[in-house]
């Protein structure tokens, strides 16, 4: 990964949103983060329509068995350097679907995750704060201190 481009992620971060079996509550909160009240675009954050343009993959919902392969495929389609952000309790720990046979486990069991945003659903402020934490992580990576 080129460390240089992390610098520009702080100015311009394009997000691609995947629903890996969410109940839509987190999706609505992500959209709320883009509305005039919270206006994530003022930080250069933009939702894009294809993984090829994305810098950060925003995954909502617990990973179902059916969608697991697709999420991994989309993750591989995102050009490097990339970040993964999991929004909502389900994607972090399976949430209320703990004992379901249809779940393939939390998202980080399958793809590397950089930022977790807990909540059911998290508030838009929390999602924007999660992006800010992603930037902090990038700063640490820039300094060569990846242990965080």
């Amino acid at each position: 990964m080129k460390k240089d481009s992390f610098k520009y992620f702080k100015r311009s971060l394009w997000a691609f949103h995947i629903n890996s079996g969410s109940c839509n509550a987190c999706d609505i909160e992500i959209l709320a983060a883009l509305t005039p009240r919270y206006d994530a675009e003022r930080f250069g954050i933009k939702l894009v329509g294809t993984p090829r343009h994305a810098d950060v993959l925003v995954i909502t919902g617990t990973m179902t068995e059916k969608i697991k392969d697709k999420v991994i495929r989309v993750f591989n389609q995102v050009p490097d350097p990339k970040l993964v952000m999991v929004v909502g309790s389900c994607g972090i720990s399976k949430g209320v679907f703990q004992e379901s046979y249809a779940m393939a486990g939390p998202v980080d069991a399958h793809i590397p995750v950089d930022v977790y945003v807990p909540g059911c659903p998290p508030r838009p402020e929390a999602i924007i704060y999660g992006v800010a934490r992603a930037w902090e992580k990038l700063e640490m990576l820039e300094k060569g201190n990846a242990a965080s």
């Binding site: 250069g44 050009p79 490097d80």
Partner: peptide
């Protein structure tokens, strides 16, 4: 913003 977007895209993997 346009300049920053462009610089970032130039540095990304193609």
């Amino acid at each position: 913003q346009g300049f920053w977007d462009l610089k970032k895209l130039m540095l990304k993997q193609t």
